[in-house]
Amino acid sequence: MPEIKVVQKRNNTTEVTISGELTIYEAQSFFTEHIQPLTIQQQLNLKLAKLTEVDTAGIQVLIMLLNKAQELTASIRIISLSVAIKDYCELFQLHHYFTVTKDKVKSNSGENP
């Protein structure tokens, strides 16, 4: 089971750190237990540097998290990414979803890097 750490900061920021493996085996329970009930403030900071393994089901859960944040009109910042996610994004050219950037990344913009 992947580990998730949620820190609700005073400055209207929700900081989410996910580590471990996020694959089809854990995706459903991880989603219902952590992502669905997650409270997101105006700013979502995502730390994904310690996500050791990710597959398509895992990536979908992450995108669902980004979608949720977007629906709540929260700004999204991806603070860090693990090699596993980078590799996945390399293969599927998903950089517009997952790029470490100081700029705010919109989740459904479809921008090409």
Binding site: Q28, Q36, Q60, I63, M64, K68, F92, Q93, L94
Partner: peptide, 27 residues
């Protein structure tokens, strides 16, 4: 060489209808 791959995420459902074991991506 994969010149371009577009992962289409248009088919994602709302958060309440989401099933983590279903494939929503189209390519």
């Amino acid at each position: 060489e994969i010149k371009h791959i577009e992962t289409i995420t248009d088919n994602f459902p709302s958060i309440n209808n989401y099933d983590a074991e279903t494939l929503y991506f189209a390519y």
